[in-house]
């Protein structure tokens, strides 16, 4: 039994504003737990969570694992390297084998878009998407929204700009979907080659001028630029990228009021963001990391909390 209208968290596209509100409010309570001397509650005792990470990610996996441990769930990490997948087993067989060990929740990271949806069709477990290719990264979208709400009090009417490689960014998609649902305005800024087709139909403003964005926006969410995009011909050089789309202090000083700076990490200092911006008083990059654990605790609790209660009552 879920405390949300959805059984899984496959993407924010399936979530209502009301559900998102519930998650963000719950995350605040979870964050209080993180500030206690004993940072652990028995909420998910007896619930088994598998972190099925078929694509490398230390950061998100660590954040989920910590969230699971804080809620007293039993956790298991499963990664692609050294697993049966590398021996030619299909993803479905791998997942069915894991589920046969009687797990309750699968947290999944995979390069294929829609792979959590695929698992949700074939498995009984609750599926949480921890990033599927360039599709969605819903908990990142939620933690970004929580961080913005902390800072501004509300998301309604807030002007948030996403800067950089939108085409390959699951963070961008979950942010766009979530922020629009919560009543924020979304501005997209990046080179034309890194902005996917049809994005304007999603109700966002698109620009290629970072200086314009800095005049208009309340907050910048700066996306990581990956070096291999340059070698595939999507932009000329990192030097040129930094010159026209890199966020630095000189640029930011033109803003009437200081902009709040977010970055999903890991950051490339000196490429999409300079150190004096990343480490400035207006940067909330480390708050994002803390909020990441709180949001993931909230999602796990809201989706799987019912299972814990059931097993407790059975035990009683």
């Amino acid at each position: 039994m879920s405390l949300l209208s959805q059984r899984h968290m496959l993407g924010l596209a399936d979530y209502s504003a009301e559900d998102i509100q519930t998650i963000l409010d719950t995350a605040l309570q979870m964050r209080d737990i993180l500030d206690r001397p004993v940072k652990k509650v028995p909420t998910l005792r007896g619930v088994t969570v598998v972190n099925l990470f078929l694509e490398n990610s230390t950061r998100t996996r660590t954040s989920f694992e910590l969230a699971e441990k804080r809620l007293s769930a039993d956790t298991l990490n499963f990664s692609a390297s050294g697993s049966a997948l590398s021996k030619g087993e299909t993803m479905l067989d791998t997942a069915l084998n894991i589920e046969a060990m009687k797990v309750d929740v699968v947290v999944m990271r995979h390069k294929s878009p829609g792979s959590p949806h695929f698992l949700a069709r074939h498995l009984e477990s609750i599926i949480i998407n921890a990033g599927d290719g360039r599709h969605e990264h819903p908990t990142q979208g939620l933690l970004d929204m929580l961080t913005l709400r902390d800072k501004f009090g509300t998301l309604k009417g807030l002007r948030v700009a996403l800067v950089g490689d939108i085409l390959h960014s699951r963070v961008a998609m979950s942010n766009i979907i979530g922020l629009k649902k919560m009543g924020a305005e979304v501005i997209i800024c990046g080179p034309a080659t890194l902005i996917p087709r049809g994005l304007a139909n999603m109700g966002v403003e698109i620009t290629h001028s970072l200086d314009d964005v800095i005049q208009k926006a309340d907050a910048l969410n700066i996306l990581r630029i990956q070096l291999e995009r340059q070698s595939s011909g999507l932009f000329p050089s990192l030097r040129e990228y930094h010159k026209y789309f890199g966020v630095n202090r000189v640029r930011l000083e033109k803003a009437a009021t200081p902009l709040t700076i977010l970055h999903p990490g890991p950051i490339n200092r000196g490429v999409e963001i300079t150190s004096d911006v990343a480490d400035s008083e207006h940067s909330v990059i480390l708050q994002q990391v803390t909020n990441g654990v709180a949001v993931r605790m909230a999602v796990l609790y809201l989706l799987a909390g019912g299972r814990a209660e059931t097993s407790d009552s059975k035990a009683a």
Binding site: G114, G133, H135, P196, G198, L199, N201, M202
Partner: peptide
């Protein structure tokens, strides 16, 4: 197909 839908779904598009 490369379209608003490939963008929404994060699936690489064929124009």
């Amino acid at each position: 197909n490369e379209s608003e839908w490939s963008t929404r779904l994060g699936v690489a598009g064929i124009p």
